[in-house]
């Protein structure tokens, strides 16, 4: 068997925002890795830091408010955080591309779809206007847009939401990137259109051998698309595992709670949904110890005092929970 190559390795990534009320550690020591040609899902609720993680990889954090304050982002063995601004520009859209949640607002309203795809080709492939245009029309055809010559000359507002997301995908894949980051790519779309787009991403990934990182809050999308999953809570990865493990044998109490609280369309219910009590803590007032402890049904003394490390288990999975450490048995069980 050929040795698997890690295309992306994020180690101890920390990104903070500096506000009048203090520092918000949006991403606070995140580790995960992605093998070439595979798909990783970053899952979490709002405030988990999943989107900031993805923006940090391309170094797209707005400088006036936030900054990457620590860690490494190894892309094909090189640390992106040590690249110059110019080097990063050559990587963006070329080696690593990104698609965003809102196809409505993510396209420039004053440029035609064709121009927006061609721009990326002209920057990275030294093509002239005409060559780039031909390639842009080709890309539109490739992402399943009917009569691409006509569509290329249209403005984003003339297209439906699903079509616009196809244009976004065409822009992202125009230069055949090795890594595609998709930040909530289907959240703004209707389910039948979501199914089309997910199918398209899968097909193109297979054809082009792209590695894929999907940021989503939708566990269904994760199950559908991903090989590996990193579950995030309050700026930290709490569980990193194979997709099968996450859905059949989740370890972290948060992952378990999350899975149980999603109402499923293909399963019958009796009575109430299982809930995670309480709410996500304020980023200015994070609990000492495990950040999930105040909402965790299993929390014991140590959980409230000390932040658990990401523990490796035998199968290569990782979980950030005291339950899986040797210290756990020494903890007194609490009556809840």
């Amino acid at each position: 068997m050929a040795k698997t190559v890690k295309i992306l390795e994020v180690k101890g990534l920390r990104t903070s925002f500096f506000t009048d009320e203090g520092e918000v550690k949006a991403v606070d020591g995140v580790d995960f890795s992605l093998e070439r040609g595979k798909t990783i899902g970053i899952v979490g609720e709002s405030g988990s830091g999943k989107s900031i993680t993805s923006l940090s990889i391309l170094r797209l954090i707005e400088e006036s408010t936030g900054r990457i304050v620590g860690g490494e982002i190894m892309f094909k063995g090189e640390n992106l955080l040590q690249k110059s601004k110019k080097q990063m520009m050559a990587i963006r859209g070329n080696n690593i591309s990104m698609i965003f949640q809102e196809p409505m607002t993510s396209l420039n309203p004053t440029l035609t779809c064709g121009e927006q795809i061609a721009e990326s080709i002209r920057i990275h492939q030294k093509a002239n206007r005409k060559e780039a245009w031909v390639k842009a029309v080709d890309m539109l055809r490739h992402v399943g847009i009917p009569s691409p010559e006509k569509r290329a000359k249209q403005y984003p507002f003339e297209l439906s939401g699903g079509m616009r997301q196809r244009v976004m995908i065409a822009i992202a894949l125009a230069c055949n990137p090795e890594l595609l980051i998709a930040d909530e790519p289907t959240t703004a779309l209707d389910v039948t259109i979501q199914a089309q787009i997910l199918e398209l991403i899968k097909k193109l990934q297979e054809e082009m051998g792209t590695s894929l990182m999907i940021i989503t809050h939708d566990l269904g999308v994760v199950a559908e698309m991903c090989d590996k999953v990193a579950v995030m809570y309050c700026g930290k990865v709490v569980e990193y595992a194979d997709v099968k493990t996450i859905f059949t044998n989740p370890k972290h109490p948060y992952t378990v709670g999350l899975l149980n609280s999603v109402p499923k369309h293909d399963q019958d219910y009796e009575g109430d949904l299982a809930v995670i009590p309480g709410a996500v803590p304020s980023p200015f007032n994070l609990p000492q110890g495990c950040r999930f402890a105040p909402r965790c049904p299993h929390a014991r003394g140590i959980c409230r005092e000390e932040l658990p490390e990401l523990l490796d288990s035998a199968d290569g999975d990782q979980v950030r929970c005291w339950i899986y450490s040797e210290k756990w048995e020494k903890q007194e069980e609490e009556v809840r």
Binding site: M89, I91, R92, S106, L111, M168
Partner: peptide
């Protein structure tokens, strides 16, 4: 501050082009 500016940066567009082509026009 709009999303499509972020898209332009994600394509590898330089600051100058982002400002004069993408932002100014709008």
């Amino acid at each position: 501050n709009q999303d499509f500016i972020r898209t332009a940066y994600a394509k590898g567009v330089s600051d100058k082009v982002v400002i004069y082509k993408h932002a100014l026009r709008n």
